[in-house]
């Protein structure tokens, strides 16, 4: 599965690469990283087929996670990628707002990778 991680914290890349070391080695998952909403948009424009799942932080300078989500739902409809939002604020308002804007699921920081791995099982496009 091709996964795009969007977070302004650059160490997220290292964390994901270590956590999914085996999966990456085994070719199960391919990870792409963007460090801002804008970067993610341009990645998606250039590689529309390279993101089955998008994991995005909400609070980012510049374009935030919600804006990114809105943009994705507006422009990338065929097929619509699965989007999971990650944020430190695991509160009701953000959850419902994300779901309203078309997010498929929700994760809170610190990311529980076991849980994430379970969730990945259910993501469509995984063969």
């Amino acid at each position: 599965m091709k996964i795009l991680v969007v977070d302004d914290e650059r160490d997220m890349e290292l964390l994901f690469r270590q956590r999914f070391r085996k999966e990456i080695k085994g070719g199960q998952h391919i990870f792409f990283f963007s460090f801002s909403g804008e970067e993610a948009i341009s990645f998606l424009n250039e590689h529309p087929k390279d993101a089955d799942l998008i994991l995005s932080d909400i609070n980012m300078p510049g374009m935030n996670g919600f804006e990114l989500l809105t943009e994705i739902r507006k422009k990338h409809k065929n097929p619509p990628p699965t989007v999971m939002m990650i944020t430190a604020y695991g509160d009701h308002e953000n959850r419902s707002r994300a779901l309203e804007l078309g997010a498929n699921d929700f994760l809170t920081k610190p990311v529980d990778f076991e849980l994430l791995k379970e969730k990945l099982e259910g993501v469509p496009g995984q063969n």
Binding site: G62, M63, N64, F66, E67, E93, R97
Partner: peptide, 8 residues
Amino acid sequence: KSFSARME
């Protein structure tokens, strides 16, 4: 919580 703004 509902507040968000673009930060440049």
